[in-house]
């Protein structure tokens, strides 16, 4: 996982310079629905053009750059809608982009090498991915609608409340499995040759791991506390 702390992003900075420094910010842009042709525009300009809250964008982009938000945050209901939409786009990226990619690398590896162990690796990844998908389905169908209802201050007709505990458990399971996959590939499974394919697979895993990491941080540091605060304010 990328751990280096990059520039602390401020509104007046040029987006392109920030992307030059940390390419993972492209993921943040994509999930916010911001086009990559950022030209020479600043963060503020780009947020305004895309009707994204600058406050929210800075918090999320700074998570990508290695800074956690302070614990006392409050958001407007429009911002919460934007967070939820960001996280949903995040899910689509895992489902339609990352999973097929990693899956195809492992499949190819299996075709090139007949070892049983790679077959098991594929099985492991698929099991893992199904778990992640279950978690996403839970978020899409239970947690997110609940948060959106909360922002409309109509707790009564909100779907059955999500459980913050369940949420966090899922997150640690997801992290554990991905870490295991990397340990297996780096330390324990011997595959001869195919460096290019294996590098692509590892790069994909790192990218997935990084984005999932930020995804969990957003939920743990923004969404869940915001939910608590609204619930508390409604009594």
């Amino acid at each position: 996982m990328q751990h280096i702390q990059n520039t602390k992003i401020k509104g007046g900075m040029k987006m392109l310079e920030l992307i030059e420094e940390n390419q993972f910010l492209l993921l943040a842009l994509q999930h916010f629905g911001i086009d990559f042709a950022v030209g020479d525009k600043s963060v503020v300009q780009i947020c305004a053009e895309n009707s994204i809250s600058e406050n929210l964008f800075l918090i999320v982009a700074n998570l990508y750059n290695g800074y956690r938000p302070k614990s006392t945050l409050s958001f407007s209901s429009e911002e919460i809608r934007q967070i939820v939409s960001f996280l949903k786009n995040n899910h689509d990226y895992y489902r339609n982009d990352k999973y097929p990619e990693i899956s195809s690398y492992i499949r190819q590896l299996q075709e090139n090498h007949s070892e049983e162990i790679i077959f098991l690796l594929e099985k492991f990844f698929n099991e893992y991915f199904n778990e992640v998908m279950d978690h996403f389905a839970y978020e899409d169908n239970v947690a997110f609608p609940y948060f959106l209802k909360l922002t409309n201050k109509s707790k009564d007709d909100a779907p059955s409340p999500y459980s913050a505990h369940e949420y966090l458990d899922h997150h640690s399971d997801i992290r554990i499995a991905l870490g295991d996959l990397k340990s297996l590939l780096f330390k324990h499974i011997n595959i001869n040759g195919d460096p290019g394919l294996r590098r692509k697979l590892l790069f994909s895993l790192f990218e997935l791991e990084f984005d999932l990491h930020v995804h969990s941080l957003i939920e743990e540091n923004i969404l869940i506390p915001v939910g608590y605060n609204i619930e508390r304010s409604m009594g």
Binding site: I117, L120, F124, A177, G179
Partner: peptide
């Protein structure tokens, strides 16, 4: 020691070793 925490991950480890 292994860097692996899930049961299925450990299974693969045990087979590979």
């Amino acid at each position: 020691k292994t860097g692996i925490r899930s049961q299925s991950g450990l299974t693969i480890y045990a087979i590979s070793k």
